[in-house]
Structure formats: C-alpha cells, structure tokens
Amino acid sequence: MTQDAWYPLIVLAPVAGLASYGGAQVLIARLGRHRNPYRSLTLGFLAGLAVLLACTWYALPGGRYSALDAGGLLILNVLIYLALAFGYFNFVNLGIASLRIRMLAELVAAGGQLPAARLLALYNSEAVAAVRIERLLAGGHLTDIDGHLRIGRRRFLLVARIFDGLRALILGSRTATGRQPPPRGPREQVTP
C-alpha cells in the first residue's frame, strides 16, 4: 500500500480513540453505578488512548514515513485525542458537578416554575461550598488534619493555577484572583 493509502487510518485514529473512550466509559460507569464516577472517566480515557496509539502505530510503518514525519504525525494525533477527550470529559462532568444543571433539574422537578428565593435557599452559597468541600475531601484534593483543611493531591490545584495564569494573560491582571472584570456591556457567559 502506498503512503496515501495508510494516511486515512492515521487521520481517523483519534476519532477511533474517542469512540473507544466513550464506549469504555459508558460500560464501566454502568457496571459500577455506585462507585466514584471519575473512575470510569479515567479508565475510559486510558482505553481510548491505547486504541489511538495502536491505530497510529499500526499505520505509520506501512506508510514508510521518515522518523521526523512519523514523530510529527504521532504528536498531532495525541494532541487531537487529548482535545477531543477533554471535551468528552467536560460533557460528562457537567452532569456530575454543574451547579447550573442541578438548578435546572430542580426547576423541572417543580413543574417548570419555582420561587426564586426557594431556589436560592436550596442552593445558597454555604450549601454549595459544603458540597464542594466534601467532594474535594473525598477526591483527596483536600485533607482534614485535626479539623483544619490542607491541600492533599496537587493535581486540581495545579489546574486552578494554570487557569489563573491564563485568566491574567487573556483577561488582564484584574481578574487574576478570580474577580469579575468591570463590565464593558452585557456579556454572554457559558458557565456550567
């Protein structure tokens, strides 16, 4: 087969990886319904990554690419898969962690209308913070030492710091601590 004949398999490898991620994640989530939902997302991600690497690795020698080209194609495929997987993770995570989705579900359960005060009372800032603190403790991101909270696993904190840096870069230093910048007019926000 010519190089051109192998290239479609290389292009479709990240898509196959994503399909494997989704399929594996659904299967693991349904089999382990009462377990930590992030377990299925992690294992599904690894399954998809394995499929991506296998497909890409299978196609590269057939196309007889130079080492430089093969390396470039492999890196590109891994990056595509990471971007697609990030999107899938966030789609599933919205159902787990999104306050907005939870508030909408309350409105549906109430028949489509609810006094605003009641919704705000159900999801007041204290209640939200309490749920989030317990979730962070359960995930090991926070630890409780004699009633005082300290950082546990640093992964999520690292992500938070990276986003703070990006916020400062894109929106300016006024928002580096998470405060809203001064409004320049009505803004569209897609916040979960």
């Binding site: 971007a83 697609l84 990030f86 999107g87 966030n90 962690a97 306050l99 939200v128 913070a129 989030r132 603190i133 979730r135 962070l136 991101h141 926070l142 909270l149 300290r150 950082i151 999520f156 904190l157 992500v159 938070a160 710091r161 986003f163 703070d164 990006l166 916020r167 894109i170 929106l171 998470g178 809203q180 926000q189 897609v190 916040t191 979960p192």
Partner: peptide, 22 residues
C-alpha cells in the same frame, strides 16, 4: 476544547476558589 476551558478561564469555579484559598 478551548471554548469549554474558556468558561473556567473567565470565571473561577467554586471548587478552584476553595482549593486556592486553602
């Protein structure tokens, strides 16, 4: 992926705020 991440860039999530404060 960037548009999804942008909502977290634009506004820090409650969990991230809690973590950074700790």
């Amino acid at each position: 992926a960037y548009i999804v991440a942008y909502s977290a860039i634009e506004e820090r999530s409650p969990s991230m705020t809690l973590l950074c404060h700790v």
